[in-house]
Amino acid sequence: MTKDDFWQGVRGGFPVMVSASPFGALFGALAVDNGFSVFDAVFMSATVFAGASQMVGIELFGHNVQPWLIVLSIFAVNFRHVLYSASIARHIRHFSGLQKFFAFFLLVDPQYAETEKRAERGEPVTFAWYLGFGLIIYLPWQVTTLLGAIFGQMIGDPKAIGLDVLLPIYFMGLVLGFRKRDNWLPVVAVSSLASVAAMHFVGSPWHVSIGAIAGILLAACLPLSKRHEEPVTLEHEV
């Protein structure tokens, strides 16, 4: 049932929305602090819709960095989405062209993670479920950005109210959620070490792409488990 799927998606995305809300508000507040108007902050949340990269963007804009470098940095922080959309292609082949457009626009980390988990459990990845999950994150992201931008001055020091610890813990929860996958521990170990080394020697935000590629290359080189022996066929898309 389409309607049931939609509401199942909304329920699934609800905890994500709750944990993302402080960051939406924080983004709004920091954006205003960096010279954005309230409109600019919401405009960025509505069009870019990628929290970590939005934070990087306002930080660089506040320091008057050249426009091409701001866009390149946002591209680098978001580069992991290339991997998501490659990985998710297997599960959303049945979407129409317009549905795919919206699906990719809404493809944030938890959306990707939950789509993979849903497919792994053998449940159908319907557009209604995907849209429900995406909208319960996307729409409140705009509202919390707006509220954060308006009441920005009241947040004060995010560390004093413990906001800085939420994002890493949330991402760590997602990492733990994939611990049943093949070669999980070596991949996590290598990506972690490579990202820390890259942070030190190359700098942020490239540590994200470099660390990710290290773990992915390792997974491609390690011995394959039995279920990977048969190649999976993918119908050619028009």
């Binding site: 998501y84 490659a86 760590m172 990202s195 491609a220």
Partner: peptide
């Protein structure tokens, strides 16, 4: 990926490692 007709097994193993690999880079430095 849709330009390719089939996913080679090693590429599938690599794709399966994507989420843990990427998210680890957001956790370890923090």
């Amino acid at each position: 990926i849709t330009q390719m007709k089939r996913i080679p097994p090693r590429m599938e193993a690599a794709l399966n490692a994507v989420p843990a690999a990427v998210l680890s880079t957001l956790v370890a430095p923090a």
